[in-house]
Design a protein around this nucleic acid. Sequence first.
DNA 1: ACCTGAACACCGTTCAAGT
DNA 2: ACCTGAACACCGTTCAAGT
Lengths: 237, 237
Amino acid sequence: MAAKHSDTRGKRSQRQYVPVQSAQPPHADPPLSLERIVTTAVELLDAEGVDGLKMRRLADRLGAGAMSLYWHVGSKEEVFDLALDLVIEYSGRPQVFEPEDWRDEAVHLLQDWRASMLRHPWSASLLSRRALGPNILNRLELLGKILSRAGVADADLNVAIWSLWNYVMGATITRASFDLSEDDRTAAQQRITRLSEHYPTIERSRLLLDSDWDGAFRKGLDFLLDGLAPGQKSCSR
Amino acid sequence: MAAKHSDTRGKRSQRQYVPVQSAQPPHADPPLSLERIVTTAVELLDAEGVDGLKMRRLADRLGAGAMSLYWHVGSKEEVFDLALDLVIEYSGRPQVFEPEDWRDEAVHLLQDWRASMLRHPWSASLLSRRALGPNILNRLELLGKILSRAGVADADLNVAIWSLWNYVMGATITRASFDLSEDDRTAAQQRITRLSEHYPTIERSRLLLDSDWDGAFRKGLDFLLDGLAPGQKSCSR
DNA sequence: ACCTGAACACCGTTCAAGT
DNA sequence: ACCTGAACACCGTTCAAGT
């Protein structure tokens, strides 16, 4: 296979990569570490999808013996959890906001959340494994802060946070799964057309073809924010 | 293992079940059929979760040889797809609505959608396999009809349908994954408390403990509907 | 402390037959 | 047409060692 083999951390080392096919270069690989394992797992997942991540393959990429991973990791599940959390890291935004900027901030956080996951489409399908890694918690904390500052009462905070989380996760999963296959989508829409007596409405609306995912995401998000946060720009219509 | 072995279809047959351990009762099981396979798959999934569905086990439950399934089914993936669609079947509601009932109808359809999936928690984690079975399409069609009747312009229909779908799916997945484990939730919240300097907001709001999932779902749904559909009850605040 | 290969248990699926 | 067992390829993980 030997797919990307991208070099993990900048550098793009000039040295070596003389095509010595025979054995692995005996000195090259840095020592195994949790960080290297997770980074490489993300690469492998990006390249081959959820089903492509196998412990042996991962070890191969790391230039390590097949079973070496288990000293660092415990189980494959754990690799999944760590990879998911890694992908969700958030650097925040430059902290130059006025108090009324809360809405922009919220939108930015949530759009970035979705975008980060869409860059790694496998991440959406791992969500159901509930794993609250530090990066996910960090995003939730930030979201809570923003909403709180926006005037959402403590009693309403959980509802607001979960509503937004739910919406973002749903949008991400849907987008990730329906976008994998342009062809499949066309095929599905054709199937619907063939059965248009049963599904006249979604046939007419070309539901599977004419979906502006990003636009739809943004619009629904605005409606939620209108409802969840008091005053300001509510009832925009 | 021999877990439940519930008897598939009502009846709870009085006859037989003399403990003949030796061989399978030679006459008992009805012939294999796609319907029986899928129904039994759902039972097995309910009992053992996604990872519990193995082809051999499924065949066992059906009193069939391990490989007999493959004449009817093609692959395990297909079993998943069919099981997911089965669970989403919708009988609609008694058709006694006035034109202005659209909102109740929409809420009912969507709440029932979520409830149906929560009755089979594994279904949420299968969603990312994009499979538009007839029952899912049927729900989408109905939703489209309701919204259309409510006055949503054709041009806005896809946005409305997808926003609602996204929200419902996200809520379902979240609920399904976070509800599996009361204990885990408490443990997670404790972990957060331990790190309360990092996560003061979600610690204060007891995000993982005090979530009224059903209430939050309903509230967010209302906000979306307020925004998506013109007039009527908009700006309820 | 860190890594390893051999071996085990298990699982989806192919295949060549059976009726 | 429908079902079957043997067999294959593969994969996560245990274990007893190696350094």
